[in-house]
């Protein structure tokens, strides 16, 4: 049995993402990578919390001056919804419905771009309205590094999912690419996990003071 063989609905296994040994390895290895990413983001959160509101002089903007509820709320909703749409995509993957999977992945990607757009607007806003830049203070460096690392992860995730969608558009699902889709969706959920802490710790706690 070859992983790249054409499959029918009857042959499609219950857990296509863990059917072959390669798939099992990929699955486990990616989870471990996420374990490492947890510590990576923890490092950034720790740095941010240590340097929050640490500015060279009192005329610099602080967290409570910068953040506004509506935009952050919008971004949170977009990203949470994109997490659900990628769950839908995996649901259809398990039911061997390639078209619907692609559709929901497409929605996920669109939501991801919308999120990125908001983030770019937000950063631009801080730079021009408040003079809060990467180099203006330790607070600025820590803020843009933490949120920017997350944004870079979103960007990479978008490129990844798009590459998978385009590459497999013609050939449909098989046991070779099912684990790839699954792992990419895990990555997307992890991005959302990080965002949950970013909006709680950076934005909401920033507004509380």
């Amino acid at each position: 049995m070859q992983a790249e063989e054409k499959m029918t609905l009857e042959q499609w296994p219950a857990a296509p993402e863990r059917q072959t040994l390669e798939a099992k390895n990929k699955f486990l290895g990616f989870w471990f990578f996420l374990g490492g990413e947890t510590v990576l983001f923890a490092s950034l959160f720790a740095t941010y919390l240590a340097l929050k509101d640490k500015v060279p002089s009192p005329d610099h903007a602080l967290a409570k001056d910068l953040f506004e509820i509506p935009l952050v709320f919008l971004m949170t909703m977009i990203l949470l919804t994109s997490s659900l749409t990628s769950v839908y995509a995996m649901y259809h993957m398990k039911n061997f419905d390639f078209k619907k999977m692609q559709l929901w992945l497409g929605v996920t990607v669109l939501l991801g771009f919308a999120f990125l757009g908001c983030e770019i607007y937000e950063f631009n806003h801080y730079v021009h309205e408040y003079g809060h830049t990467f180099t203006s203070s330790a607070f600025g460096s820590a803020f843009y590094t933490l949120v920017g690392f997350h944004g870079a992860h979103v960007t990479f995730g978008l490129g990844w999912i798009l590459a998978l969608m385009i590459r497999n558009a013609k050939r449909g699902l098989d046991l070779y690419n099912a684990p790839k889709f699954y792992v990419a969706s895990l990555y997307w959920h992890f991005i959302d996990v990080v965002w949950v802490f970013i909006f709680s710790v950076v934005y909401l706690m920033g507004m509380v003071g």
């Binding site: 740095t47 500015v55 060279p56 330790a138 607070f139």
Partner: peptide, 20 residues
């Protein structure tokens, strides 16, 4: 972080700009 400080003007470790 150290690379950002040295090459991109960040202030993580620059005490004068609030770093540590």
């Amino acid at each position: 972080l150290l690379m950002f400080d040295r090459l991109f003007g960040a202030n993580f470790f620059d005490v004068a700009a609030g770093g540590n």
